[in-house]
Structure formats: C-alpha cells, structure tokens
Design a protein around this nucleic acid. Structure first.
Length: 637
RNA sequence: GCCCACGUAGCUCAGUCGGCAGAGCGUCGCCUUGGUAAGGCGGAGGUCACCGGUUCGAUCCCGGUCGUGGGCUCCA
C-alpha cells in the first residue's frame, strides 16, 4: 500500500496526497491559477522550493508575489539571473552576494573596470534573454568539502570565504539555472521564465561584507515584477515620490536652502522658521506638562570636558576643534557634558529626582562628505534633547514616560514608526555588567509596551545602549528620529551624586533622549510626509487673501488686518494679476485657505473661502471663518 | 572617506562632433481691472562650478579641486 501524507493548507483545509508529492503538485491540485502564480512555499514554517517533496504530514503555505516572502524570493531569483547575465558578458567578474531587499535586489561584483550605465543596459537585455530561455532553478545540496572544491574550481574567492564562515553542520546548497551555478541557500522560483519584468535601477560601490577595510565591490541594484504593468506602476510611484522630496519642496516652498559655502549646514528661510518655531512651541508645551525644565548650554567648551566625558577617546573623529587664548576647545557634538555641569552646579537631593532637564541644543558633527543629505543628514543640527537624572528604581517608569511622549507626538503628525534596540558597540566604555543591566532595562520597557522591535547588535552609543524611533521618508528610506539612551557611564565619569533619604551620597542614572531627534531632520520628514501641504496649524502661510482686482485691495487689507489680530498667519496678494493666476500660485504654494474678496464680499462684510483640498466652499462672514480656522489650528489639524 | 553619475540664467532644462550660449517659468517695465489653477507686449539677467593643461581658439577634450545626486561605511 502506498504511503500517504496529510497536508494542512491555509484555512485549516486538509488534503491527502501520496508520499513524495511536490508542493507544486499540491498547488496544481488546489487551482490552476495558484499553480501559475505560486513562487515558493513554506512547509512547517520553512521556506522551500516548489519542487520540494513532501514526505511527511506537513503544514503547507503556498506563496505568491502577494506575500512578502514570495516577493523576496522572486527578487532574489532575479538577482541570480542578473549575475548570470553579468557572467555571460563579463566572464572575469567575481561574485559577491546578491540578496533581495525591500522593493528589489542587488548583486555585488568584483571587476577591475567599472560598470557603465551602458553596461547596465546590456546586462538588462541579457537578462531578458535568460528569462525568455526559461531555465529551471535546480537545487544541488553538497557537503562542505564538495562546496569548497567546486568554488575553488570556479575561482570564486568571496563565495569561498562565505562557505568557510558557515557554521558547522550547516546545509550547503548551490542553485543552477542554465549554465550558471551559484552558492545559495535558496529557495528560488521554479524557473527564470517567471521573472517577467526586470529593471536595473542603479550602480553603487559597496564594501565587501559592509566593512570599509575591505575591498569595494560594484553593486548593481534592480527590481522585478511578475507583470510589466506592475513594474511601470512602481516606476511611476517612484517618480511621484520624488516630487515629495524635501529638498525640492524646500526650495519651491521657500523653506530652507543649502549652499556650497556651508556643505551640510542648512539655512532656514522665514517660512521654514515658522515650521521650526511652531514645532518648538508645541514641544515646550508638551514638555512643561510632563515636568521638564529647560536649560541652554554653550556650543564651545574646553577640551578637558570632552576628555572627561569620553568623547575625546570615542567620538573625536566626529568633532570640530578650535582654540581660545591658547587653550584647546571643542565644538559640542552632544549636549550631555554641558548639561551635566548644570546638574553639578548644586547639591542634588533625592527629592528632586527624577530631574528632567531639556535643551534645544545646537550640535556640530563632522559627518563624512558622502553621507550628507538635505535636512536629513547634516553637519549642524538642533537636538530636542533632554537628560533625565533618576534613581535606579525610577529607570523603567521614566523610560516608559519617554516612550509615551514619543508616541503621543508622532501620532499628532500621523507618522508610522518602528523601534530598534541597539546594544553595546565595539568602541565603547564601561564594564559589561552595566551594559547588560542597561540593555535589559530598555528591553523590558519595550516588552512592557508590547512593541515589535528590531535589535541592532553593536549599534549603541559609546556610553550606553539605546532605543531608536525610525520614521520613513517619501521613498521609504527610514531615518532615526527619537532616541532613548540609558547611561551609567557619564554619572560615573563626572562623579554625579544626589543625597538620598539616608543622608548619604548616591549615584544617579542618566537617560539621554530626544523626540524629534533633530529639528532639521524632523522638518525634512514632515515636508515629505505632508508633501509640503502642511496641516493648518503648521502651515507657514495659513491664509492668502486674494482681491478680485486692484479695486478691492483696501477691503483685502482690512481682512488681512483682522486675521492678523487673531494671530492667523495671513498674506495679501497685492499683485496686479487676475484671480485665476493668484489662486494658482497660492495653490502651488499649498496654502490651506484662500479668501477671495471682491464687490459682493466687500458690500456685505463676507469672504469667499477656497480650500487647498476642496476648492470653492462658498462665502461666510469673516467671523465665521475665523472660528472655523481657529478650531483647526487648536485641534492641530 | 570610498564607488558611480552629474554641475549651462533665480528655477526646470535644451545646446555646441572645439569657433565669443538658448527656451519655458520667475523677475522688472508698460498695457489690461479681470470672480476660483497661467491675459498681452517689451526688457534685464550667464566668467557655461572653480583651478590648471592640450589647442590659433575650451562651456565642450584631459587632469585636479569643490559641490550635488544614488549607494557603501558611519549616525539624530
């Protein structure tokens, strides 16, 4: 009697097949459509090829391009096809790695000459050929010895390095599509013919294994889709996203500018400053409510301070230096040492703790020239910093308080965010047990909040581990904004103390934290998030008064004055132009309200309201309009 | 810092296979006084990023510097 396997499908449906049935057979049995769209499968939670044979009762999930893992497999297979095309055209290249990434894939190659954009076109053509040839992807499992032998024959030093680093007992596999064979854990789509629409998008350098001490390889980025139309849609979406780029909108909306005279040092224009000041007004209010005090410390401080804080040994390459009266000074890259001097300016009692001292501190950091990016990555920025000096027993509660504040603030702006926990880096100070204690305190807080979080091993600050809040820009890149860093080191180094209830000196713990992160970066994110169409409470210009003709300038001026009296940010378009022209411009400037005033309005003391989103919404009295807009401003809409 | 690409008017971009540079928008002036996304005419505006080389002659070719963009490493 033939043995059978029971297969548990999605929705708890169970089917029975002869032992040795492939996942593809199961897909075919379910529906021809699924068979056509199936890319890869999950058997008992493990990703496998569709050719995988089921030899025991299993839970089977068949994945298509709709599934995250299906997409990643699809892109990863495309990267193999790209490597195949590159090998055909440039047989001398050595292969690095070629994973799927969000929205696409890349492959790293080592080649003496650099690839040109023309090469990319050729590679893309060759890929299309390989896809048309429809080679199946075949899995070949080998022993470590066989793998090493094979890679030596193939002359692939980077792959060889990868195999040598694989842990004892790891399954080693190759995948073969046509004449191309590559070391790869898999899985893959059934054959190259599935990869209907491919596009190579960019060319970049990338260090082997992400280490700048290693050789720089050439990375080719691309993306792929199962349908041409999906690729086109994606490319269009990227074009649209570029229109929201804060650097472009910053110029168009006259918010800020960058100049060759100060690379990485942004210049804020009047309208950008309104965003800035509105944000910090909001920030101050929320911090006052939560028991924060505000301080301000100098930008330039004696280098002795930085030696003491550890910045000299751990952060010097990011700092700027100067000299005053023959003595060495540093321009602050962080606010903590200055803040600590304020803490130490008097004897602190346990009754004062937790002591929450906030500072909008302008810091300067020497960032590598290649990383500068609009407002997102600059060399001088204002952190909405705060240092909380707490007793050990208060740590958790204070961390939770910061998490809540960050969540509250991000929700006001409608941001999606994710959090990451970063642990001890290589270049850091202090004993391991303190790091362990600090890291678990942060971890506990995250667990308590029920956050899904990513762990970045070795990514903490040199004085302590941290929780980071990441927000997305218009094309999906994420930027770290808020951060919470737990620090047992600085209190030690600066011999911080408070007098406990027992009359003895005790060591406080410091929590460093930001919510916006940097005002610059946060504003950059805001611009992209709203595509420049800020909610009324943030809009640099909230109302544009547009007289129908020069005859109604006086009435327009009167409307403007009354709105100004109500502290509404209003401009009057006095130019000798037609209404349509002035409206168009106000619309392009993304001003939320336009008030059209002419004969009718002047006669009855009315305004005609046009909104950025809805167009003409009819007339009302100025008083009515004021109530309406003030409500929006108060509600932060 | 490293890899690749780019740098022409305030902005967006054409252009010259080496022979003293162009459009649209914006800006300025004049005409028009117009009711919900561009009224008409005219003018001004460029050391073609900077430095050097090749050449009779360079914005164009070559080298370097600076800056920008996309990545890598690094970080708010």
């Amino acid at each position: 009697m033939q043995e059978q396997v029971r297969v548990l499908l999605k929705g708890d449906e169970e089917r029975v097949y002869p032992k040795g049935v492939t996942v593809m057979d199961v897909a075919r049995d379910i529906s021809p459509k699924l068979a056509k769209e199936a890319l890869v499968a999950k058997v008992d939670g493990e990703l496998v090829d569709l050719s995988y044979k089921l030899d025991k009762d299993s839970k089977v999930e068949i994945l298509t391009f709709e599934d995250e893992e299906g997409r990643r497999t699809f892109r990863h297979s495309t990267s193999h096809v790209m490597a195949q095309a590159v090998k055909r055209l440039f047989p001398d290249v050595k292969l690095g790695i070629g994973p799927a990434i969000e929205d696409g894939f890349y492959y790293d190659f080592d080649r003496d000459e650099s690839f040109t954009p023309e090469d990319l076109e050729k590679i893309e053509k060759e890929m299309e050929k390989i896809i048309a040839e429809d080679h199946p992807f075949e899995r070949i499992e080998v022993s470590r010895e066989e793998a090493i032998k094979k890679l030596e024959e193939m002359g692939e030093p980077y792959k060889l390095e990868l195999v040598n680093d694989l842990p004892e007992g790891a399954k080693i596999s190759f995948y073969k599509n046509g004449e191309f064979v590559d070391l790869c854990a898999g899985p893959h789509v059934p054959s190259t013919g599935r990869l209907k629409a491919v596009k190579l998008t960019s060319l970049a350098g990338a260090y082997w294994r992400g280490d700048s001490r290693n050789k720089m390889l050439q990375r080719i980025y691309g993306t792929s889709f199962p349908k041409k139309s999906m690729l086109e849609e994606y490319l269009k979406k990227m074009e649209e996203a570029k229109k929201r780029d804060h650097r472009k909108l910053g110029r168009e909306l006259d918010l800020f500018s960058m100049h060759e005279e100060g690379p990485g040092f942004p210049f804020f224009h009047p309208k950008g400053m309104i965003l800035w000041n509105t944000l910090i007004d909001f920030w101050r209010k929320e911090h006052r409510k939560r028991g924060y005090q505000e301080i301000k410390t100098p930008i330039i401080l004696n280098e002795e301070l930085w030696k003491r804080s550890g910045h000299w040994d751990h952060y010097k390459s990011n700092m700027y230096f100067t000299e005053i009266d023959g003595e060495g000074y540093a321009i602050k890259p962080m606010n903590c040492p200055g803040g600590i001097l304020v803490y130490k300016s008097q004897v602190r009692s346990y009754r004062e703790l937790p002591l929450r001292m906030a500072e909008l501190g302008l810091v300067h950091r020497h960032e590598l020239s290649g990383v500068l990016h609009g407002l997102m990555r600059v060399r001088s920025f204002t952190q909405d910093d705060a240092h909380l000096y707490v007793m050990p027993s208060q740590i958790e509660e204070e961390i939770l308080g910061v998490i809540d504040l960050a969540d509250y603030v991000y929700k006001i702006f409608g941001f999606d965010y994710h959090v990451e926990l970063s642990t001890r880096p290589e270049n850091s100070m202090g004993p391991d047990e303190l790091w362990e204690k600090a890291t678990s305190a942060l971890r506990n807080a995250l667990e308590k909040k029920g956050f899904d979080y990513k762990v970045n091993e070795g990514d903490g600050a040199f004085y302590g581990p941290k929780i980071d809040f990441h927000l997305k820009d218009s094309i999906g890149r994420t930027w770290q904004c808020g951060t919470i860093q737990l620090d047992f080191m600085m209190p030690e180094r600066f011999d911080l103390a408070y007098i406990g209830a027992d009359g003895e000196k005790h060591r406080p713990v410091m929590i460093h934290r930001t919510i916006f992160g940097s005002l610059e970066r946060f504003i950059g994110i805001l611009i992209e998030h709203y595509a420049g169409a800020f909610p009324v409470w943030l809009s640099p210009v909230q109302v544009k008064v547009i007289p129908v003709s020069q005859k109604f300038l006086d009435y327009g001026l009167k409307v403007k004055r009354e709105l100004e009296d109500q502290e509404i940010r209003v401009e009057l378009d006095e130019r000798n132009e037609k209404v349509g022209y002035k409206i168009r411009e106000a619309q392009l400037q993304k001003i939320p309200y336009m008030l059209i005033v002419g004969e009718k309005e002047e006669a009855e003391g009315l305004v005609s309201v046009r909104t950025r989103e809805e167009g003409d919404v009819g007339t009302r009295t100025l008083q009515e309009f004021v109530l309406e807009i003030k409500k929006k401003i108060d509600d932060k809409k």
